[in-house]
Computed example of a mutant assay.
Amino acid sequence: MNRIIRGENLAALRKLAAGSVELIYIDPPFNTGTTQQRKRMKAVRDVAGDRTGFGGHRYRTETLEAMPVYADAFEDYLGFLRPRLEEAHRVLTPTGSLFFHIDPREVHYCKVLLDEVFGSRACFQNEIIWAYDYGARSKKRWPGKHDNILWYTKNPKEYTFRLEASDRIPYMAPGLVGAAKAARGKTPTDVWWHTIVSPTGKEKTGYPTQKPLGVLERIVRVHSNPGETVLDFFAGSGTTGVAAAKNGREYILIDESAEAVKVMRQRLKALAKA
């Protein structure tokens, strides 16, 4: 079942069988109006270099080939999303879930669209706030340090929610709950504090919009069962597939970028060998 599909996602979705996928996570372009690209750099030891590193040694930075580039701007963003979300609804099993990752500028419009696609506001279960604390800080407004993840279910009352499978997090005031509870930790709420992918960490692939594995693993563990299928049709760096594979789920990953597909294959091949 595990598949990586390079292609236009709407066309690929239309080839999937109805009711064949238990869980969908997507992180579509956010319609920021910018071009998304991340440069890859290499530091080479050079006494005439442009920066100083460990031990006072001088290094020269070299720019390697750029990671995938895409224009994150749409004249009709909701018109772009609607047919893809309609197909997502079609391929979900009767008890399946969709997680839609977006930012605060577009989330209100996307929620109204999802209410329409799923046919009932009752199919909306949660808005999860993924909060992080990294990067530049604006001096003209409160710095934006969160994304929004909308959780919808195909059936408003019957769906997979395995809270016991979730990781646990520290209490903010452990002294108020006692030693036993503090040691065990608590289950997460709808606000998820989790760092972004570290720019210098092993998890980093260089893909411009890579999301952290910890966030995806929590979704996969709680909202699907072992052996079920997880779909991501804006798959990018393949984090959804890695989360699925690590936790005994099947995956279908779709992206039209050759570079994205290359990154996914490398990550999943390395995981299989681990």
Results as ranks from 00 to 15, higher is better:
V177Q: 08
D133F: 11
K139S: 13
K139Y: 12
A180L: 14
K145N: 14
Y159G: 01
K157C: 11
Y132C: 06
K139M: 15
G206W: 01
F233H: 06
S257P: 04
S257D: 07
I252M: 09
D190E: 14
G144S: 09
D167T: 07
A136Y: 12
Y159L: 11
A245E: 09
A244Y: 04
Y171D: 12
Y152N: 10
G238E: 03
E158N: 15
T189I: 07
Y159C: 06
P226L: 08
K139D: 12
G248I: 05
S166D: 03
Q210A: 05
G241I: 05
L213R: 01
P156H: 12
G201I: 06
T200I: 14
K186A: 13
A179L: 09
E256A: 10
A245F: 08
V197W: 04
V191F: 00
A165C: 08
I169T: 10
A258E: 14
K202Q: 11
A131R: 15
R221L: 07
A235K: 13
I149Y: 00
L216S: 02
F161W: 10
S224G: 09
I169D: 07
T189A: 15
G201V: 07
T205W: 00
K186G: 06
Y134S: 15
L231F: 12
M172R: 12
K211I: 03
R249D: 06
G236A: 06
K246D: 03
E203S: 03
L150H: 12
A180K: 14
K157N: 13
D190P: 02
Y159M: 07
I254T: 04
A245Y: 12
A173Q: 11
T195M: 06
G238S: 04
L163G: 13
T240Q: 15
I254R: 05
Y171F: 13
M172K: 14
A182T: 13
G238L: 02
S257H: 04
F234K: 01
G135F: 15
Y134G: 06
K139N: 14
N247L: 14
G238D: 03
R162H: 02
P174V: 07
Y171T: 08
A243L: 02
G175D: 11
V191N: 06
T160I: 14
P174C: 09
L231E: 03
A180E: 13
S138E: 05
V177M: 07
A182F: 06
W192Q: 06
A235D: 09
H223C: 15
G185T: 07
A136K: 11
H194T: 04
A243V: 12
I149P: 04
P226E: 08
K139E: 13
G227T: 04
G178F: 07
V197G: 00
L216I: 05
Q210D: 00
